[in-house]
Design a protein around this nucleic acid. Structure first.
Lengths: 334, 334
DNA sequence: GTGAAAGCGCTAACAA
DNA sequence: TTGTTAGCGCTTTCAC
């Protein structure tokens, strides 16, 4: 990489002259400016990012910590973050916590040494189960702002981007009831997560209002989902509706239902918190509760960058943005 | 963030003393060392990463450019890269090219300013179609090593990690033939990619050897996959085997086959380049050609880091590592 | 055993 | 209009 020093030497001027010329400073004469710029282009000069970061005490880099990159929703949020960040000239350093508290702590620690200007994260499962939040507070205390999305900690003061989980399942359940469904089950592999709990509550409330008894199937990590769902169908032969809290159990349920000679959606309706692409994996396609993952990511990035670049504003004024879900009907519901 | 300067001031010693003490230099007296370390822990001192990078002219950061984060295979490779990189004390900056040549070029440019020590990437579709490779050569020319995985450019001299695409489909097709299948189709949504072409060739060769006529279905971006596959089934009612070159058309094909009253695997066998998690999305589960994505990522990271940290070795000696696929049988084949 | 000083690449206040 | 200098945080050589 060419440096200012080398350019200066070759041009026979001082380093600062070169620097100013390249930054279009008014101080430098027309001609010198031209000469400098020409040589710079010729050598494909690019200011050293590290030196700039050191000088300006900001890296234009965002640390993103996500629990699981193989989760389609989370990957899509990451996509949204990356896009929005790039738009504003930011890069992202990605760490995957793997749902582990220790890895989450470690990533936070490791990047809180000048590597990034702030964090965007969704909380690891273990962290939520153990209800640990000190590491977040510490990081914020060190002057590094955090924006949390989806799985958030209520007791940490920071910007947040969440989904209307409760309302979403409440409404979805209501709509199945409106279809005349009487035996609506709730399948979840995320019952330990904050969002999983909210979704379950929305479902429960909707049923309660109609005096219908809830029917739950929780799938643990390591369980054989096919097996579990097959057994569930066997045990509950009056099943005529399913709300899936995660991204995959819905499509599996549809495909499985047909093994039991059930017509979808004639005999049974299925709705899931999934995405368009995954909804294709069943025949008929799954009716989904869209979470607008990309938008969530973009919003999170926007909030963080705004906080980073407008330090004038009230630093204790945190916003929580709710990105509303949309029910996208396919042929798995009436 | 606390700096050496502040510690030095508080301790009444010089900056260099503090630095040396923290780095366990023999020059510093036992007692001073202890005092310094204590204060450092108390203040949770961490050396500023940016300053270190500037000083040592390396960032311990890898730039990763992937075409599509929503592709399960690519996401899994990213996972593998991140893990291996972390193990060696490296962070990763992720850029998503979105299959666009321009974005790929831009990302390469943007990070080749001291932000990263090297790159790991899989080539964007547009880049492969247009057969552009100059931007890679330039980057390498600037002293930044590149490791390519999966979709690679043969004419670029760098380390590569690939899959035995040709052999994999050749063998998979052979195995369907061995099951007695006579009308084996090849479904692909990646016919433009280097890997897609290799896979198709393997399929063709296997059929050719048996004198069977190939049967191709190419799905373009924007096509309705359900629709396409449904029509394909209608038109080819003797279909008794499917090789899917991508990660999703296999599961869709299984689920669709059952709409045509075909028993899987009794009437038709399906094999796909997919992953365990996606294979769950069909009933019965899809027999897959596993690509060991995590291993590919880990290997790529390993190759890059080795090159970065052993500059003594012959710099023009590039390796191409082939990570062999595994056929994992489920109930979609006999 | 400890400290001063240079230097990594850059910007910007100040001097000329 | 251009150049000198200091300084961002750190390591390291060299002097004391």
């Amino acid at each position: 990489m060419v440096t200012l020093k080398q350019l200066a030497k070759e041009l026979g001027v001082s380093i600062s002259t070169v620097s100013k010329a390249l930054n279009d400073s008014e101080e430098i004469g027309e001609e010198t400016r031209k000469r400098v710029k020409e040589l710079a282009t010729q050598y494909n000069y690019k200011p050293n990012k590290v030196a700039l970061s050191l000088k300006q005490n900001k890296t234009k880099t965002i640390g993103v910590i996500i629990p699981d990159i193989l989760n389609y929703f989370l990957a899509k949020v990451l996509f949204g973050i990356e896009r929005e960040a790039n738009l504003h000239g930011y890069n992202i350093i990605t760490c995957i916590s793997n749902e582990s508290l220790d890895k989450e702590k470690e990533s936070l620690q490791l990047l809180a040494n000048g590597s990034v200007d702030g964090f965007i994260l969704s909380i690891a499962e273990e962290t939520q189960t153990k209800n640990e939040i000190n590491h977040f507070k510490e990081t914020i205390g060190q002057g590094l702002p955090i924006v949390m999305f989806d799985r958030v900690a209520n007791d940490v003061k920071c910007d947040k981007v969440i989904v209307d989980d409760f309302e979403a399942t409440y409404n979805a359940t209501k709509s199945l009831i409106a279809e005349g469904r009487k035996n609506i089950a709730f399948i979840s592999s995320i019952d330990k997560l904050s969002v999983g709990k909210l979704r379950e509550r929305g479902y429960n409330k909707a049923l309660l209002e109609e005096g219908i008894k809830p029917l739950l199937l929780n799938i643990k990590k390591g369980d054989d989902m096919h097996q579990k769902i097959r057994q569930f169908f066997k045990k509950n032969d009056a099943l005529d509706g399913i709300i899936s809290a995660d991204s995959t159990s819905g499509v599996v349920a549809i495909n499985m239902a047909r093994s039991f000679k059930l017509k979808v959606p004639k005999d049974i309706s299925v709705v899931g918190f999934s995405s368009k692409s995954v909804s294709l994996h069943s025949v008929p396609k799954l009716t989904i509760i869209r979470q607008h993952a990309k938008k969530i990511g973009a919003k999170a990035a926007e909030l963080l960058i705004h906080r980073l670049e407008s330090p004038t504003e009230n630093p204790d004024d945190f916003t929580t943005k709710v990105v509303k879900t949309t029910l996208v009907k396919s042929k798995s519901t009436l």
